[in-house]
Design a protein around this nucleic acid. Structure first.
Lengths: 151, 151
DNA sequence: TTAAAACCTCAAGTTAACCTTAGGTCAATA
DNA sequence: TATTGACCTAAGGTTAACTTGAGGTTTTAA
């Protein structure tokens, strides 16, 4: 299908509209594009145009960030989505399953921290060698640092 | 008297020793000092010397960071410790209680996210207005962003 | 005593995830 | 048609929490 036909048959969104609908800044959309988290094409005047499913994509990015997943991890996971077609509900569901598991791990780790923090602060394990908090035996400890932004 | 003996009798620690014992870099100790998280005095040659309780302080800082508490929050909490005497076990215990509560909140929030993420990704709340994840009604949502580093 | 190891300060670099600004172009509307 | 608002790029700024490097001093140990 030609570009012209696409525009006629599918709704195409401007960057300003997408920004308003998704609640992120235009600059963030630019930024996400450089990070290959979203994509767009250009109209004749070099302005960005988006397919509507970019909105869900952004929502997913934001949700994942809320879970403490970094943009690079998000990028990795998003790139498992089908490239040739608009993702289905099943596609998105699989993503959420993936992240749910990560989140479960993090929650368990936090619980362990919570349950040990007092003893740890009160104890004499100054070298941090025996501290249960520092002995993360699950692979959480080995994973690259994932910042959790709870804003 | 040798410096080694001094360490035994007066228990004053050098920056290198503290770094090794606590597992952080010397540069980090410098940095923490500029942030007023720890303190030291200088010997005649302008080198830092520490009281042994700096080790516990560092352990606490690290533990709090593990819980996702920012250095500025840690600074605020640490400054509630008595200034005039070495903190007792009770003092430290009070600190841990304080942070435990915060951690509980974060865990609950994460659980809410986990329990809602699939529905949220699958649902049509593209404006993010009705999404349970974005409607953090507890004061977690209003707090300054606290990065959780799970390295 | 003297060389190596440990310290010192100050400035600048690093990473993530954006935001801001400058200097222009494009598009919508009165 | 002309103006205003929306867009564009590229570079540089921001914050947190550190790290690295340069250039010089102090301590320790053989």
């Amino acid at each position: 299908m030609s570009e012209a036909q696409k525009k006629l048959t599918e709704a195409t969104l401007t960057v300003g509209y997408v920004a308003k609908r998704s609640g992120v800044n235009v600059s963030t959309l630019h930024f996400y594009e450089t990070k290959q988290l979203i994509k767009s094409w250009r109209n004749s005047g070099n302005q960005r145009r988006y397919k509507p499913d970019v909105l869900r994509r952004i929502a997913v990015i934001k949700a994942a960030q809320t879970m403490g997943i970094s943009l690079s991890e998000i990028h990795a996971t998003l790139s498992t989505l089908p490239n040739n077609r608009t993702p289905t509900k099943q596609d998105w569901s699989a993503l959420s399953k993936h992240w749910q598991a990560q989140l479960d791990e993090r929650i368990q780790y936090m619980q362990r921290v919570r349950d040990n923090i007092e003893g740890c602060i009160g104890c004499g394990c100054l070298s941090l060698k025996n501290c249960p908090i520092y002995n993360k035996d699950d692979h959480l400890g080995k994973s690259q640092n994932g910042a959790v932004y709870l804003k």
